[in-house]
């Protein structure tokens, strides 16, 4: 199929519809509003549901209801809106509901600003809601992946009965690039566990409550067995010139793109530098990082936050190799020059 030049945020919606998403419940917020707007335009044309909820809280709970009823459903927001959704996300994780939450991240804390930051890493990857749970977090870095990973998110959500997050910074959401859209998914997995208001499903119960400590412990252990399976099967990352590298840069989202440009520049000067881009922020490519540490490669983590993913990198390599960090915040994006300087600085520190 030919490529379409399209905004990342809009690619999310087209991908979702192709993946069989039947409903979107959301609340407007910059820089994620194009998702709601595209959903509002396209979904009703296909007899599907778009509803602008009264609040982020309302939206995530409508998602909770629709997911309980057994359809593919999504919501999207940006950082402060996601903070509000965390209650519902925790409930959905506890009740094992399949749904997709897209987060187009912006600056914080508080109202912050609408420029791109990656400071939602902790609230998404570490679980911003209460309780023992994890979310699969996918981090696209281009418009094509905004489509592809949104579609993948629906598959993962169904396969593991869990909320899946697609987290992209404002630039990846706002950027336009050519995207090749796949054919619509026709066969969706059945959900015999849903409460669909039918004779086949009326015995079902969707809940996150287990009054007895032993029951709740059993349930949480069940969740964590599922998470172990996800960790074993679903790690995704991309590498660029890592094999002979003395220094491996690590970044996700738009930062990985800037790092790629920086690496091309220092490679041209004969320096051996590579890039590892986690695509799944959880499950995290910790085994791959441990192997890089085994090989004695130095690591440089770059993020648009004050250092969040870098904690996971340090845990993965157990301080066996130096892990440098460079972060910009407030909506500032590292320039090519900054990236170049940081790479040179950390190379020289060998």
């Amino acid at each position: 199929m030919a490529k379409q030049f399209i905004k990342g945020n809009e690619a999310v919606v087209k991908g979702a519809i192709l993946a069989g998403c039947q409903a979107y419940y959301g609340y407007p917020i910059t820089p994620a509003s194009e998702i709601a707007e595209a959903a509002a335009y396209y979904l009703p044309l296909l007899g599907r549901t778009f509803l602008q909820a009264e609040s982020e809280i309302g939206a995530i709970n409508m998602v909770y209801g629709a997911a309980s009823a057994g359809i593919r459903v999504m919501t999207a927001s940006s950082s402060p809106g996601i903070s509000l959704k965390q209650e519902g996300i925790s409930y959905a994780a506890g009740a094992e509901l399949s749904c997709v939450v897209v987060d187009i991240t912006r600056g914080g804390p508080g109202l912050g600003n609408i420029a791109p930051e990656q400071s939602d890493y902790n609230q998404m990857v570490k679980g911003g809601g209460h309780g023992n749970y994890k979310l699969i977090v996918l981090a696209p870095n281009c418009a094509q992946e905004m489509c592809d990973l949104t579609m993948h998110a629906f598959d993962l959500a169904d396969r593991y009965r869990t909320p899946v997050v697609v987290m992209a910074d404002g630039f990846v959401g706002q950027m336009m690039e050519p995207v090749e859209f796949p054919a619509p998914v026709v066969d969706l997995p059945p959900k015999p566990w849903a409460t669909a208001g039918t004779p086949e499903t009326y015995k079902n119960l969707i809940t996150s409550i287990d009054l007895e400590p032993d029951d709740l412990e059993r349930h949480i252990n069940h969740l964590y067995a599922k998470y172990a399976e996800i960790e074993a099967n679903e790690v995704r990352y991309e590498e660029y010139m890592v094999d002979d590298a003395d220094l491996v840069c690590i970044g996700f989202g738009v930062v990985s793109r800037i790092l790629q440009s920086g690496i091309e520049r220092v490679r041209a000067e004969g320096k051996k530098v590579g890039l590892l881009r986690p695509i799944t922020l959880w499950p995290f490519p910790e085994k791959r990082l441990a192997r890089l540490a085994d090989e004695g490669k130095k690591l440089l983590v770059m993020e648009m936050n004050k250092g969040m993913m870098v904690d996971d990198v340090r845990l993965a390599v157990q301080h066996r190799v130096p892990v440098g960090f460079y972060g910009r915040v407030g909506g500032n994006v590292p320039s090519g020059r900054e990236v170049y300087d940081q790479i040179m600085l950390h190379l020289e520190a060998v």
């Binding site: 419940y25 909770y64 015995k203």
Partner: peptide
């Protein structure tokens, strides 16, 4: 069919169920 909802959110959950 039973769904247990978060505190106060039952009408939003019901919205998602009914519209589905």
């Amino acid at each position: 069919g039973n769904i247990q909802a978060a505190h106060g959110r039952a009408p939003a959950v019901a919205t998602g169920v009914k519209r589905t």
